[in-house]
């Protein structure tokens, strides 16, 4: 029988993560407004919210991921939830959060785009070029979603590494997360060539191949997390 308890987990975990993300986006949006109205550096044009938020969204997801094992997992097991249900629920919640963290910048950016046509802002907002270079807003949104999820998984990996294996081995998991970041950059930012140890083949192939590669890496990371949490002893 398939247990439906993971739904309870997903609901509770998402609710917590959602609250954190509201804080995060409020702060981020305030900074963006300050940048638009006051710290615009007298340039003619600055980036719209979608581009502005990308980097921070990834870092936010990384931090939430780092908290996952310590905040959620032991709480679940203590409340009589199996590791499997805790894992599936947390994975679903994280996917939901990545989706939400993609939609917010997208919607705000869209609103800015409409707003820029009706009122005059101190600087011109570039709310479009992000989408032109990547092949439309759908592609840009998919890219942000996959990146956000990858950063969450990297954080989750670090957190389970520390939780399960302690400080020294934990560093190995940080190293592993750098490999993840490197591969992610290799996929999404071919020009930056971050992975020095890998023969560089510019991936100027089409977007969908990159998205496929990124999705594969996400699946591998999800599977790895399941393996690492499957029989994990709970700290007391």
């Amino acid at each position: 029988m398939i247990s439906a308890r993971y739904k309870k987990v997903a609901a509770a975990v998402f609710s917590d993560m959602f609250k954190w993300s509201l804080w995060f986006f409020s702060i981020l949006f305030t900074i963006h407004l300050v940048r638009v109205f006051w710290l615009n550096g007298s340039t003619n044009q600055i980036e719209g919210f979608f581009i502005f938020a990308q980097y921070s969204v990834n870092i936010f997801m990384l931090v939430v991921g780092i908290m996952a094992a310590y905040v959620f997992m032991s709480r679940h097991i203590q409340q009589g939830i199996s590791r499997r249900d805790s894992y599936i629920g947390t994975a679903l919640a994280a996917t939901g959060l990545a989706l939400f963290a993609t939609l917010v910048p997208l919607i705000v950016n869209g609103l800015q785009h409409l707003l820029a046509e009706t009122i005059s802002l101190p600087v011109e907002l570039d709310t479009a070029s992000a989408f032109e270079t990547t092949g439309g807003w759908v592609a840009a949104a998919i890219a942000l979603f996959l990146n956000a999820l990858t950063f969450f998984l990297a954080g989750w990996l670090i957190s389970i590494g520390y939780y399960r294996f302690g400080w020294i081995a934990g560093f190995a998991f940080i190293a592993l997360s750098f490999v993840v970041f490197g591969l992610n950059d290799y996929l999404w930012k071919p020009a930056s060539n971050v992975v020095g140890w890998m023969t560089y083949h510019p991936l100027e192939v089409d977007f969908w191949l990159t998205a496929l590669g990124s999705s594969t890496m996400i699946l591998v990371l999800f599977s790895l997390m399941r393996l690492l949490t499957k029989r994990v002893p709970i700290k007391m």
């Binding site: 247990s3 308890r5 199996s82 249900d85």
Partner: peptide
């Protein structure tokens, strides 16, 4: 409480192994 798995032997709740058994784990509050 299924916080860990025994090195050997069985831990049963109402006759079923408790570790990673959602129905049984739910019955234990530690």
């Amino acid at each position: 409480a299924a916080f860990r798995v025994p090195t050997s032997g069985k831990v049963l709740v109402d006759g079923s192994p408790v570790f990673e058994n959602p129905e049984k784990m739910e019955q234990v509050a530690f």
